[in-house]
Design a protein around this nucleic acid. Structure first.
Lengths: 107, 107
DNA sequence: ATTTAATATCGTAATATTGCAATAATACAA
DNA sequence: TTGTATTATTGCAATATTACGATATTAAAT
């Protein structure tokens, strides 16, 4: 097979896995870090900074965007990619809730 | 290609991605949740609970174990898999450090 | 020593992910 | 309108992941 059997898990569990997946590639972690460190940045900067080809960066940005983690308009020429800090915080809290819940009752 | 270019990222970034990868599959999130909810549990319980074949569970447990998240001996017949709460907490703090650091300076 | 029960490993098929070259689309400037 | 610069999309090759049947290993019980 090879595909995850998403339907056999609860929504909460799938949500955690989906969130984790965004951070499960170093390029995306690096991109998020870089975006947050810049006042505003455009994709070409990222390409130079990270060291991957432009289409590859664009693909990773799409994943990050689909997680709701990008702010600003992003079509056309010179574009401002910004970290959606609210969503970023929300994700952090979501993860912490899972961690705290899981920690609570153990041998 | 298809392989992550691990060598072009900092250790910190690769570490975050490696941690996230553990949680990036719902089966592993579910296994961790189940393990933590039981006083002690054996793999066969997990197989019944999660609904994947025994080899598949075993494979996921290996990933979890390699992340240092399992306590107890795990060879032979009846085995007690326990969540390594210390390591679990350590990972939580590691992620929070990354999140807080990334949040701090943004537009 | 044999059986039994539980977990690990191997081999393999199916799907997902990653990465990039080529190309398209978009926005702006001249 | 015609470049020019920037980002998105497409198509494809390579690698990784997921899942499971078959089999091996392990530990305990009989």
């Amino acid at each position: 097979m090879g595909a995850s059997k998403v339907d056999i898990y609860s929504d909460q569990i799938n949500a955690i896995a989906a969130i984790a997946k965004v951070f499960a590639h170093p390029a995306r972690v690096a991109i998020l870090k870089y975006i947050s460190s810049q006042e505003s940045c455009i994709c070409n900067d990222i390409v130079d900074k990270i060291g991957l080809a432009q289409p590859t960066i664009s693909q990773h940005l799409k994943v990050i965007n689909e997680a709701g983690l990008l702010n600003g308009s992003f079509e056309g020429k010179s574009i401002c990619y910004c970290l959606n800090v609210d969503r970023f915080q929300e994700i952090q809290e979501h993860l912490n809730a899972y961690f705290n819940q899981t920690k609570s009752n153990c041998c």
